[in-house]
Deep mutational scan, measured.
Amino acid sequence: KQVQVGDEKYTFDTPEEARKFAEKVAKEKNLKVTEKNGNFHVE
């Protein structure tokens, strides 16, 4: 599963790991997490 933050992409083995990372980054940057096709976008 992938997490996209701006132009950066991070790959994780499980959706749970990806979601945790996305939520942590979103909180730090005051952004929101959206899920698209099983991948997460922080925007």
Rank of each mutant, 00 (worst) to 15 (best):
K1R: 13
K1L: 13
K1E: 04
K1A: 15
K1N: 15
K1G: 14
K1H: 15
K1Y: 15
K1S: 15
Q2Y: 15
Q2A: 10
Q2E: 12
Q2F: 15
Q2R: 06
Q2L: 14
Q2P: 03
Q2M: 14
Q2H: 14
Q2N: 10
V3G: 01
V3E: 01
V3C: 01
V3W: 01
V3L: 01
V3S: 01
V3H: 01
V3F: 02
V3I: 02
Q4A: 07
Q4H: 15
Q4S: 11
Q4C: 13
Q4D: 06
Q4R: 08
Q4K: 07
Q4E: 08
Q4N: 10
V5N: 02
V5F: 09
V5Y: 09
V5S: 03
V5H: 05
V5P: 01
V5E: 02
V5D: 04
V5M: 07
V5A: 03
V5Q: 02
G6Y: 08
G6H: 07
G6L: 08
G6C: 07
G6T: 02
G6E: 06
G6Q: 06
G6P: 01
G6V: 05
G6M: 08
D7A: 11
D7E: 11
D7M: 12
D7R: 10
D7V: 09
D7P: 10
D7Y: 11
D7T: 12
D7H: 12
D7K: 12
E8D: 12
E8S: 11
E8T: 13
E8W: 11
E8F: 13
E8Q: 14
E8G: 05
E8I: 13
K9S: 12
K9I: 15
K9E: 08
K9H: 13
K9L: 15
K9Q: 12
K9A: 09
K9C: 13
K9T: 15
Y10Q: 02
Y10D: 01
Y10A: 02
Y10H: 06
Y10F: 13
Y10C: 05
Y10I: 04
Y10K: 02
Y10N: 02
Y10S: 01
Y10E: 01
Y10R: 03
T11A: 08
T11F: 15
T11S: 11
T11L: 13
T11W: 15
T11V: 13
T11M: 13
T11H: 11
F12L: 02
F12Y: 02
F12T: 00
F12M: 01
F12K: 00
F12D: 00
F12H: 00
F12G: 00
D13W: 06
D13F: 07
D13T: 09
D13H: 08
D13A: 12
D13P: 11
D13L: 09
T14K: 05
T14L: 05
T14R: 05
T14H: 06
T14E: 06
T14C: 05
P15Y: 15
P15S: 13
P15L: 13
P15D: 10
P15H: 14
P15M: 14
P15R: 15
P15K: 13
P15C: 09
P15Q: 13
E16W: 07
E16V: 05
E16R: 04
E16K: 04
E16Q: 08
E16P: 00
E16T: 06
E16H: 06
E16C: 08
E16L: 06
E16Y: 06
E17A: 11
E17V: 03
E17F: 01
E17L: 08
E17N: 05
E17T: 04
E17I: 05
E17C: 08
A18Y: 01
A18R: 00
A18G: 01
A18W: 00
A18F: 00
A18Q: 01
A18K: 01
A18M: 00
R19W: 09
R19D: 02
R19M: 08
R19N: 04
R19A: 06
R19S: 05
R19V: 06
R19F: 09
K20L: 13
K20F: 10
K20P: 00
K20E: 13
K20R: 13
K20Q: 13
K20G: 08
K20Y: 11
K20W: 10
K20N: 11
K20A: 14
K20C: 08
F21A: 02
F21D: 01
F21L: 01
F21N: 01
F21I: 00
F21Y: 08
F21H: 03
F21M: 01
F21E: 01
F21W: 08
F21T: 01
A22D: 00
A22N: 00
A22P: 00
A22G: 00
A22W: 04
A22E: 00
A22H: 01
A22I: 04
A22V: 04
A22L: 04
A22T: 01
E23M: 10
E23H: 10
E23N: 09
E23G: 04
E23P: 00
E23A: 08
E23V: 07
E23S: 05
E23D: 10
E23Y: 14
E23L: 08
K24N: 09
K24Y: 09
K24M: 12
K24L: 11
K24Q: 12
K24F: 10
K24C: 07
K24D: 10
K24I: 08
V25H: 05
V25G: 00
V25Y: 09
V25E: 06
V25S: 04
V25M: 10
V25K: 06
V25W: 08
V25N: 03
V25A: 06
V25F: 07
A26W: 03
A26D: 03
A26I: 03
A26F: 02
A26K: 02
A26R: 01
A26M: 03
A26Q: 03
A26E: 04
A26L: 03
A26S: 05
K27Q: 12
K27H: 11
K27I: 11
K27T: 10
K27V: 09
K27M: 12
K27R: 11
K27E: 11
K27N: 11
E28C: 08
E28K: 06
E28S: 07
E28P: 04
E28R: 06
E28Q: 07
E28W: 06
E28I: 08
K29L: 15
K29W: 13
K29V: 06
K29C: 13
K29N: 14
K29I: 06
K29A: 11
K29Y: 14
N30D: 10
N30T: 04
N30Y: 06
N30H: 09
N30F: 07
N30M: 06
N30V: 04
N30Q: 08
N30I: 03
N30G: 15
N30E: 08
L31Q: 09
L31M: 15
L31C: 09
L31N: 05
L31K: 05
L31P: 03
L31G: 14
L31E: 06
L31S: 08
K32P: 07
K32Q: 12
K32L: 10
K32D: 07
K32Y: 10
K32M: 11
V33H: 02
V33M: 07
V33P: 03
V33L: 09
V33K: 02
V33D: 04
V33R: 02
V33S: 02
V33Y: 07
T34A: 06
T34K: 08
T34C: 05
T34H: 10
T34I: 14
T34Y: 14
T34S: 09
T34V: 14
T34N: 09
T34L: 09
E35V: 15
E35K: 08
E35W: 11
E35I: 15
E35Q: 09
E35N: 09
E35H: 08
E35T: 09
E35C: 13
E35L: 14
E35M: 14
K36L: 12
K36T: 09
K36P: 03
K36Y: 12
K36D: 09
K36C: 13
K36R: 13
K36Q: 09
K36N: 09
N37W: 06
N37R: 03
N37A: 06
N37H: 08
N37I: 02
G38L: 03
G38A: 02
G38W: 00
G38H: 04
G38T: 03
G38N: 06
G38M: 04
N39K: 10
N39I: 15
N39A: 14
N39D: 09
N39L: 13
N39C: 13
N39Y: 13
N39T: 14
N39P: 03
N39M: 15
N39V: 15
N39F: 11
F40Y: 13
F40H: 03
F40N: 02
F40I: 08
F40E: 03
F40M: 05
F40K: 02
F40D: 03
F40G: 03
F40A: 03
F40P: 04
H41G: 05
H41P: 02
H41L: 14
H41W: 14
H41Y: 15
H41T: 13
H41Q: 09
H41N: 08
V42L: 14
V42F: 07
V42Q: 02
V42T: 04
V42M: 06
V42C: 06
V42D: 03
V42A: 04
V42K: 02
V42N: 02
V42W: 02
V42P: 04
V42Y: 02
V42S: 03
V42R: 00
E43Q: 11
E43R: 07
E43L: 11
E43T: 13
E43K: 08
E43W: 11
E43F: 12
E43I: 13
E43P: 05
E43N: 09
